[in-house]
């Protein structure tokens, strides 16, 4: 299953709710303000690093670049463009947006 998170982890519970429910083998895609969850050296970096063992975590490169933080991404996170976003949607059986 593909989980899409579009909220900053510092203002909303979406990422936490997603991490709680996402099963091993699933994929999380961070878009829009959700990409702040993909950065190194933050209060949630450790949690993401831990999740990376079981879950594939991706972040939309355009949203990282737009916000000037593409150089701060955690190791192990896969960057995708809109083409990659489409591929994630078609490659996974289901899509859940944590609005």
């Amino acid at each position: 299953m593909l989980h899409i998170v579009n909220k900053s982890p510092f203002t909303a519970g979406a990422l936490q709710s997603c991490l709680r429910i996402a099963k091993a083998g699933s994929t999380i895609l961070m878009i829009e303000d959700g990409i702040y969850g993909a950065l190194d050296g933050t209060a949630v970096s450790g949690q993401i690093r831990e999740a990376l063992g079981d879950i594939t975590v991706c972040a939309l490169s355009h949203d990282l670049e737009a916000r000037g933080v593409n150089g701060k991404v955690l190791d192990g996170i896969t960057l995708v463009d809109y083409d990659g976003f489409v591929e994630l949607v078609t490659a996974n059986d289901g899509v859940q947006s944590w609005l």
Binding site: I4, N6, V89, T90, G94, V95, S97, L99
Partner: peptide, 8 residues
Amino acid sequence: DRLVVFGD
């Protein structure tokens, strides 16, 4: 085959 929801 897939529904993708964009919102807030």
